[in-house]
């Protein structure tokens, strides 16, 4: 049993916990606790056909546009010619003696199988030697989906009558065809196959062409097809915003921790204790399989989120 500290009310942990739960505000001017700004902005006061559009038809603007077109074509031709000139100075394609086929690539090919355990050299490269690069990519995808969420999210429930009506009007959920029998029967056959194929690509990333990114995209496509056939209500039981957040964050955290551990032990010449297994077996090549699964989950969730956000502005 641990004793509760006397100064618990003023301790840093309590403040941090309150801030995390949105109860207290650590910043002075109430920046964090300010009322959330609604997405709908004030409509612009200008009439739809204001004076502004007339400016576009004036003589000067017309001349400027002609000049602009001429100049941009000239600029593009200049860029193409300069780049072609550069290509002419580069070594010829497909030649084994080109300087980009240097000792880095040779090392990956010659020692990759022994050091990473992956039969697919590209997977061994991007998920072992250059794994932090791939972590950055997953973070770029995650940040991209967060930005789209910020820009397109519609959530006006229980705030304002007018706003709620506006949200309902822009929500195209009411216009989607309900119970399309052809689509439903087709997706009954197709969705399981697509999902299994996506899982196959993710799990065999270290053995054959494929991996987390391509398999995740296939999985996301299967989820989108299911959503189109059966609607948001049935999909909402399976896949909610909370589940999306949990899957993405835990996958990214696991990736970061696992790779930090393996890089730390590798850099200090310690035993990492991760078995590499027999090359070619499905349970081989150490951390590459779990990392591929993490990347696949992040990509599948992101693709599905992009679709739902563009479609109706929410999960």
């Amino acid at each position: 049993m641990s004793r509760i500290r006397d100064d618990y009310e003023t301790s840093r942990w309590k403040k941090f916990k309150g801030w995390l739960n949105g109860e207290t505000d650590l910043l002075e001017h109430g920046m964090e606790a300010r009322e959330a700004v609604l997405r709908e902005e004030d409509p612009i006061v200008l009439p739809p056909h204001g004076e502004g559009r007339e400016v576009l038809k004036s003589k000067g603007i017309w001349r400027f546009k002609q000049l602009y077109k001429f100049m941009s074509v000239a600029l593009c031709l200049g860029v193409i010619l300069t780049l072609l000139w550069t290509v002419a100075a580069l070594p010829i394609t497909g030649n084994a003696d080109n300087p980009d086929n240097n000792e880095v690539a040779a090392r990956y090919i010659e020692r990759g199988l022994q050091e990473t355990g992956a039969v697919n050299i590209v997977t061994g490269m991007i998920l072992d030697y250059r794994a932090f690069d791939t972590f950055g990519e997953s973070c770029v995808l995650f940040i991209g989906s967060c930005c789209v969420l910020l820009l397109l999210r519609l959530d006006g429930s229980g705030r304002d009558k007018d706003l709620e009506r506006l949200v309902n009007e822009t929500n195209d959920r009411h216009f989607e065809p309900k119970d399309d029998i052809i689509l439903q029967k087709c997706s009954c056959v197709l969705v399981p196959v697509i999902l299994i194929f996506g899982i196959y690509i993710v799990l065999n990333g270290h053995l054959s062409p494929g991996g987390g990114f391509s398999g995740g995209a296939v999985l996301g496509a299967g989820l989108i097809l299911y959503l189109n056939a059966f609607g948001y209500e049935r999909m909402g039981k399976l896949f909610t915003e909370k589940l999306y957040k949990r899957i993405t964050l835990s996958a990214l955290t696991f990736y970061c921790l696992a790779k930090s551990y393996s890089f730390f032990t590798g850099a200090n010449h310690l035993e990492s204790g991760i078995p590499l297994g027999t090359p070619g077996a499905i349970l081989s090549s150490g951390l590459i399989l779990p990392l591929n699964i993490c990347v696949g989950l992040v990509v599948a969730c992101t693709m599905y989120t992009f679709y739902t956000l563009f479609r109706k502005g929410g999960m």
Binding site: T93, G94, N95, A96, N98, D100, N101, Y108, I109, G112, L113, V119, N120, I121, V122, S208, P209, P279
Partner: peptide, 12 residues
Amino acid sequence: KGYITGRAVPIV
């Protein structure tokens, strides 16, 4: 740029 004529994909 990474292609070399007559060689296979980098899967052992």
